[in-house]
Design a protein around this nucleic acid. Structure first.
Lengths: 160, 160
DNA sequence: GTAGAACTTCAGGTGGACTTGAAGTCAAGG
DNA sequence: CCTTGACTTCAAGTCCACCTGAAGTTCTAC
């Protein structure tokens, strides 16, 4: 049973606090997204700021970032001390433009859907639907999109 | 060699025009997301409006929709005739609120990141980072997020 | 000191969206 | 008619982000 909350947290404690599975916590640890020390018996122990790192990981995943990208971002956090406001602020600052970008693209897509599907045009050069390469990048690596830029193929043919 | 563009398109022609792989086109066909007829020799042939369907599929995937969801949406299109403006409009209309919602959540996350990481607070009850369940749904099924709602665990503990 | 919850590693599984390769068939230009 | 590129099916492989289960070990409250 877990009672008090000491300075170092076990896998299960971290998992509970972050709302992720223990297996995920171990996985993040194996990937180096979070750090752990070990007890004499070999069990993982985490600093309390690990919770914040995992919160960041979850939020970042929720907007489509891969663990690879997230790891890159987290790499800018200090390894040997608890991150300060300034440390986190640096991470937030680098990500903010990406979020802005993503929002922009979604808005563009929505507007295009209205203007384009709505009117049934889908005229090839102009249409976001038909030239989705720029949109594909907006969510980072989710499914592979395979949207090779075939603009050379796109001659203004009426699709009816 | 593909020369003229007849009324019915082959897998390769559709793939080229849509910027997706031929294997993907076949896959969509197998899933019933697009329709095909067959030549005497058993080769697939697609109507030209298939291009539009695939454009829709690609765009929808790019914003995180699964093929399942996309299939559901496309199911409202007529099977035996080329979709009209009104047909597509119906699809656009049903999806618009979802896009709006998704945009809203992203904006909220961005603002929270500014307010929350920026200031270093991450105070548990208030923080979008720490209570990301509502955000997880914003991109549909991508990676599984596992963000079980543990708000009961979230007692205002100072994370330092 | 002991029960039992929580931990360990490791191998293998899952799901979605395809891709790849093999072995064979079809279509169209010369 | 023949070549060649494009097509066919089917089985198996890939990638990511984990999950599951087994078999064994550690931790902690009593």
């Amino acid at each position: 049973m877990r009672t008090s909350e000491p300075d170092l947290l076990s896998v299960g404690q971290v998992a509970d606090r972050c709302g992720v599975a223990a297996s995920a916590v171990r996985y993040y640890d194996d990937l180096g997204l979070i750090r752990s020390s070990r007890t004499a018996g070999g069990q993982r122990r985490f600093e309390r700021d690990t919770i914040r790192r995992i919160a960041f990981i979850s939020a970042a995943q929720a907007v489509g970032r891969s663990l690879q990208e997230i790891g890159d971002a987290l790499a800018s956090l200090p390894d040997r001390r608890t991150p300060t406001h300034a440390d986190w602020n640096r991470v937030a600052t680098t990500w903010r433009p990406r979020l802005d970008d993503q929002i922009e693209r979604l808005v563009a897509l929505r507007d295009q859907l209205d203007a384009c599907i709505g009117c049934g045009c889908l005229s090839l050069e102009r249409c976001a639907m038909y030239n989705p390469t720029d949109v594909a990048a907006s969510l980072g690596p989710g499914p592979r999109y395979l949207l090779g830029d075939r603009s050379s193929d796109v001659v203004g043919v009426d699709e009816r």
